[in-house]
Amino acid sequence: MSGTDSGSADVTPRKTVRKIKLWKPADIIVILLWISAGFFLMFRAGSDARAASPALRLEVTKDRETVGVYSLDEDRIVEIDGSNTFEIKDGRVRMVSADCPDRVCVHSREISSDGESIVCLPNHVVLKITGGEGGGIDAITE
C-alpha cells in the first residue's frame, strides 16, 4: 500500500485529498471510540483475573444452595443457619465451630487459595474459595 503511494509522486496530492474526503474526522472518532471501548472492557476483565488475590471470594453452600459469597479481603465471623460458624481473617478462612458430632471441618486446615475448600459433611456445608485464575492445585485426594 505505502509502496504505491510513494511510487508515483505526481498523483500523491490528489490521493491525499481523496483520503481526507474518505475518512472524515467523524469516522475516525467513531473507530477510535469503538476500539478504545473494546480495550477498556478487555483491560477491565484482564485486570480482574490477573489481580488474583483481591478477587478471591468465599462461596458458602448448604445442600448445594449458595447461602453466601464473601470477599476474603474483609475480616468477619459468619454463622450459617446456626449449625456452623466460620471466620475470615487476613485472607484466610477456617471453621470456628460446628454442631456436628465429628467436627472434622473444625479440624480442617485453614484455606486461603483458589479451589481450596472446607467441608462439614454431616451438615452439608461447603466453604469454597473461588475467583482466582486456577493456576494452582485443582483437587486434593483424601
Binding site: V30, I31, W34, I35, A37, G38, F39, L41, M42
Partner: peptide, 10 residues
C-alpha cells in the same frame, strides 16, 4: 468493523 473487532476481543 471496529465493533466486530472489539466484540471479538471481548
Amino acid at each position: 468493523l471496529a465493533g466486530l473487532i472489539s466484540v471479538l476481543l471481548l
